[in-house]
Design a protein around this nucleic acid. Structure first.
Lengths: 136, 136
DNA sequence: TCATTCTGTAATTATTTTTATTACAGTACA
DNA sequence: TGTACTGTAATAAAAATAATTACAGAATGA
């Protein structure tokens, strides 16, 4: 991963888990994370798409977990926020006339994919519930 | 990892391995990678510090591997180029008044460190020689 | 019904990070 | 002593991230 989105997503989810079903507003969440509520709402879109949270509009609205914290692994969170590949951005345009340059992207991709699989497997060892339980 | 430096470093090292001891200039390396020679020279500084390459100044100068490609693991290359933590930048400044915010950085750091160890272990399974042998 | 308090979302701007460029001093060779 | 390199700094450009602002629309409840 290469963005603060994982941290933010995990922070949101941990707070929601701690809230035990009570709806938390994006402003409240933003207060704990110390970022802008609009950023929280943006990340909530993604968490909703991935089925982790549900939100209620309007007065007294807010968000809560949509499924049990036991069912949400850190690997799944990671996958929900990652967009570009793990070890480097793939905008390299090496020289196709060079035997190495011509093929390196293919080999780098293989390497990144293999490595990322291991990473996700490792993250999957821990659920949101496990992570959340570390907090008092 | 979250920068193109890994790709560049590995590309450089692969080219040097293929060159079989012959000195390659930063301009030649840059030509294969399709980046600026100054960028290559910058990355070479790091590779030198880490003992992977050696460079010779002056006319007919250039760089070559300083140790055998068998002794350079991809994990070691990864470690040489990484600067910030794996899963997210650590500039978060959560709200210390919140029980979750107060402690999340500590727990995130633990998680990142554990995960990164696994990642490096995985990358260490492959040496530069292994990687380089994939190219004709 | 209507003021209030939320979310949803788009548009814009600011900041930070990364990458690229330029330039030139110093070194080694022939 | 000219040429072809590296070393390195300074600067600029580009890209990625994050923050801000704004406002329409939804739900509540007085």
């Amino acid at each position: 991963m290469n963005n603060g989105r994982f941290s933010i997503a995990l922070h949101i989810l941990t707070l929601l888990d701690k809230a035990n079903g009570e709806l938390l507003s994006s402003e409240y969440l933003a207060g704990s994370i110390n970022i802008n509520p609009a950023m929280v709402r943006k990340e909530l879109i993604n968490l909703r798409i991935n089925g982790f949270v549900q939100s209620k509009e309007g007065k007294n609205g807010g968000s809560s977990l949509a499924i049990s914290a036991n069912e949400i692994t850190l690997g799944a969170i990671y996958q929900s926020v990652k967009q570009i590949s793990l070890l480097g951005s793939q905008k390299n345009t090496p020289n196709p006339k060079c035997p190495v340059g011509k093929n390196i992207n293919e080999h780098l991709n293989d390497l990144y994919n293999d490595t990322e699989l291991i990473l996700i497997k490792q993250l999957n060892k821990q659920s949101l519930a496990d992570f959340s339980s570390k907090f008092s």
